[in-house]
Amino acid sequence: MTITPQMLGQVVISGILAGALYAMVALGLSLIFGVMRVINVAHGPLLMLGAFATYFLYHGLGLNPYLGLPLVMVVMFGVGALVQRTLVARVVDAPELQSLLLTFGIAIALVNLAQLAFTSDIRSVEYLTASWTVGGFAFSKSRVIAGVLAVAITAGAFLFLGRTRLGKAIRATSQSPDVALVCGIDVDRIRMITFGLACALAGAGGALIAVMVAIQPEMGQIWTFKSFLVIVLGGAGNYPGALLGGILLGLVEQLSSLLLTAQLSEAVSYVLLVLVLLVRPTGLLGGRAT
């Protein structure tokens, strides 16, 4: 197979589009880690819930998946806040082993609840299945829209973190919970909001990929891993790093599926993870140690 510049161009654009989505979802994981020093293994399964919510809004109420997205985000915010308040809050200050195992248990419970409630039938949202052709490049409409919306939502999240009082409180808490406490920030509340926000981002990811891939209870796990990879690449708890990491992962995946096969692109990402961890254990942009 010869690789034309045309194909490379396509790969770069698809990689960036996919990367924007990765960045958005991973920002959620990074926020939780930054504020609570918890790696939320249930992040992917929460994304799966977002995809199912989109599916039922579409098939049950006939709601356009993109219009359903804000609703999904609001619902997922609530789910996240609830999970944090009732479960995660109890182990935030315990050794990290505890929180890791806890979110692992939550992940398993969520996936199997979904199996019971929704069965493992493969479902899909057939919406915008066509492609746009621009200057010889073909783009699936759903992927372009997903990429653009992901950029918009991520930008919104950064504006929120950078400009609002609440966002600044979140960043202060992730710098140092003790200092935040001294400054009169209600750290417990910030943690709950952060978890909600992270789940809203995962939910948005679920809604956006609902129109692109098969929806089933086990679709989420791989997203836990991918989001983790992104924050490792960008540096854990380093929020802008998630952007870089996302784009990088998108590009690597697309390139390796072009040069090798789609099946091996996961293996390539894994090798990338191990290499980065060997060379820069704190991520490419540098993060904070755990």
């Binding site: 880690f33 790696i39 293994v41 990290e96 082993l97 890791l100 796990q221 791989i222 836990t224 891993f225 983790f228 990879l229 490792v232 099946q263 091996l264 996961e266 293996a267 894994y270 993870l273 191990v274 961890l277 060997l278 254990p281 140690a289 755990t290």
Partner: peptide
């Protein structure tokens, strides 16, 4: 050489990758 959570998720990834390979 990684701290706890990194190791945990790396192992999760390892299993997926081996299966794919």
């Amino acid at each position: 050489r990684l701290k706890g959570p990194y190791f945990a998720i790396s192992m999760l990834g390892l299993n997926e990758v081996l299966r794919a390979l």
